[in-house]
Design a protein around this nucleic acid. Structure first.
Lengths: 219, 219
DNA sequence: TATATATAGATACAACTTTATCGATAGTTT
DNA sequence: AAACTATCGATAAAGTTGTATCTATATATA
């Protein structure tokens, strides 16, 4: 293998792609064949330039005065994100957050197949949540045998997070989707994405605070 | 009221504050009185300069060769985010995602008091989830009477999101924490923060994809 | 008391992201 | 067929965020 630079794309653009994808699928269902970025932009209160730039990272190209082909665009986004290939995943922590993720059908459309869930609670072990079997956490290695598990989803209490992560590494996951606020110690070749609900709440709080200051104070 | 410019702070900095806060509280529990940003930075694999800049938005100032007072810093962050004042909230959608939020005790520490939950499912109405009563959605206005509800949390299916948002506006919420992928139509003075799980998954997916390309392809 | 050192604060620079502008193109209208 | 217009693509400018560097200061040490 030769070393080569992998071109990287703007993170904000990547994050906006799912929004466009959702809209494009809606349009396809309505029978639309073409769509312009002007149209997409006004839908989301953005500038058309930004939409165009975002879409361009997928490699797709539109036609002046016409726009983009809806189908082509959907394929391009899904291909870019790897959402047209199914990836098997394990979810650890079958509490309410875990159940919420198991129940969200959108992820199936994104190629995410949660093959099994795990927990330590005897009440949950053996049950089925949203058609997904819940196993004993200590059977994880065994359940994984013969399977290729690409992603591990961690929805356990913070204290258990690192231990669970280590088990998932043994199973051979390449990516971890971490819903706990814990910074995991992982080998550098494993991709980790954290869902930081506190960060989101902090943004909401600070904006509410600012708003209060603005409405209430006089300078 | 006079018009004046409200200074705005870097969003990424705001998002990182909860991470520091968590660490600082840990340190306080261990009896630490002082902490340097060098220490914080190494904990999170960041640069000390960035930590310093992030902390500076709260208005706090440290002392050279000494560092910051842990208590002072905790107070400053909580004050900046408004987390030292309790805010009452309504949560709409008592499914698994709603339950997960109700069950996450961290939010209480952030000043978020979910006063009531709402749903349309007769099975759920009248129940109590994590000490929070679940009411019939159509009783929302009535339940709100006499209360000041600052925040509305939306954890319903996408199709119901806009309707719920409109009800919350009637209740007088100033902020909405939206867990659905729907872009809500709201008056401009209402603050809305969206939790985009698909965006997070998109980042994970694209990085996994890139990784595969890097490991597999030869240029 | 003088010197060394770790640390905060300020300033400057670089990288990244968003926004604006301009030219090219394909369809539409006259 | 020519002029017009909506749209894309490319490039440039502006704004924001992250990183590096330098100075000042408080403590420790000789």
């Amino acid at each position: 293998m030769t070393t080569h630079t992998v071109k990287s794309f703007p993170l904000p653009s990547i994050q906006r792609l799912p929004v466009y994808l959702r809209f494009l699928k809606e349009q396809r269902n309505r029978g639309e064949v073409l769509v312009s970025c002007t149209r997409i932009a006004e839908e989301f209160g953005q500038l058309s330039v930004q939409v165009r730039k975002d879409l361009s990272i997928t490699g797709i190209t539109g036609r002046p005065k016409v726009g983009y082909r809806v189908n082509e665009l959907i394929d391009a986004i899904e291909d870019f994100l790897g959402w047209n290939n199914k990836t098997d995943a394990f979810l650890v922590g079958a509490g309410s957050l875990g159940s919420a993720i198991l129940g969200y059908e959108g992820f199936v459309e994104h190629g995410l197949n949660i093959a099994a869930a795990f927990d330590v609670d005897p009440e949950k072990i053996g049950q089925t949540i949203h058609r997904c079997p819940v196993h004993d956490l200590k059977d994880m290695i065994e359940v994984a045998r013969g399977k290729t598990i690409g992603i591990g989803i961690i929805t356990v209490p913070s204290t258990a997070a690192q231990g669970v992560a280590s088990m998932l590494l043994q199973v051979g996951v390449q990516g971890i989707w971490n819903y706990t606020p814990v910074r995991l110690d992982l080998p550098p070749d494993v991709v980790c994405e954290e869902v930081k609900l506190s960060a989101s709440f902090a943004v909401l709080s600070s904006r509410l605070k600012k708003r209060t200051v603005f409405l209430g104070e006089d300078v």
